[in-house]
Design a protein around this nucleic acid. Structure first.
Lengths: 169, 169
DNA sequence: AGTTATATATATCGAACTGATAGGTCCATT
DNA sequence: AATGGACCTATCAGTTCGATATATATAACT
């Protein structure tokens, strides 16, 4: 999914500024399956506005940059709808942890148990965060997606927890 | 992890050409947690060679481009070892499926059950592929990593399978 | 026999994206 | 009073992607 569609989709859930979109994809309930930088979001919003797929209302603020609140237009909604008809592309998962684990065997085997323990702690942290978010989710789909993330995190945690003793001996 | 470290790591497991590295990260047992294009691999190999971290043996071939077989140098092994000491950065997961699911609720709710069914089929396919690879894995760590992937895929599949009826009514 | 597809292998290039940063205010904690 | 984080827009160098060019061998269709 390109940034354009991502922005359209987020705006289909409610109006937002570029800053808020960035926060959603980077920290919010979108963060475990998406990511985008200002350098891609702001140009995308500008272009989508030019094309009439979203609309921009400037809210004047005295002591900081005027807030630009974007909303989805009817044309934009149609484009989004059309995008959702085609099959989503396969996931892209990049994990330094798994790569490190694989490479450590040859050059730094003593590091492996630490690596796994740190990762388990990381999963626990993620699980807690997602669990806390669960109360705040409203829509059926957003809850479903959040719990998908939870299920995956828990499976990973359990796998590591059960399997780490393979590297103790 | 940048491409440079990824190349060092792969070469720590055995010598390879750029083409083979690309195949490993794109299709092999690395494919579910890494990805890289020719446009990044070839320049990285050239630069690593200039810096003496890897070595290049050209194998002359009559009717196709000379094969350049890269191997890790002692200096490269040290750099890799050092890289593995610092904590791996958090994973980056991009899922068009989850985004589509979330966005579909507002603009194309009828699409959701299809989306989920296609995804289950996709997971089944991935699970089969990973299971088949299991026999071929040799190292302790590579088997562990592969089975991590399997555990995650299975958890996702089961979650979708159990939860999809939430969207039938 | 001829066409098409896939595998081998290198390499480049425009487009897209990241990560860091600039610029400035308000607010909370130390 | 000072440091750091939240807010909000925006740009830019550097990295990476995705597609493509080049060239041959082999296997599989028609």
């Amino acid at each position: 999914m390109d940034i354009r569609t991502l922005c359209l989709g987020i705006l289909s859930l409610g109006n937002a500024t570029g800053y808020e979109i960035k926060k959603l994809v980077g920290e919010g309930s979108f963060s475990f399956f998406s990511e985008a930088s200002y350098g891609s979001i702001y140009p995308a919003l500008t272009k989508l506005t030019e094309e009439g797929l979203i609309e921009c209302k400037e809210k004047v603020q005295s002591k900081r940059p005027d807030k630009k609140i974007y909303s989805l237009s009817d044309a934009g909604r149609k484009v989004l709808e059309h995008s959702l008809q085609s099959a989503p592309k396969p996931d892209k998962n990049k994990s330094e942890f798994l790569a490190a684990l694989l490479f450590a065997e040859a050059v730094a085997p003593d590091r492996i148990p630490d690596l796994i323990d740190e990762r388990i702690a990381h999963h626990d942290h993620q699980i807690k965060q997602l669990s806390d978010m669960r109360n705040q989710e409203d829509g059926k789909a957003s809850l479903f997606v959040l719990e998908y993330g939870l299920a995956v995190q828990k499976a990973a945690r359990d796998y590591l927890s059960n399997g780490k003793n393979r590297f103790n001996g």
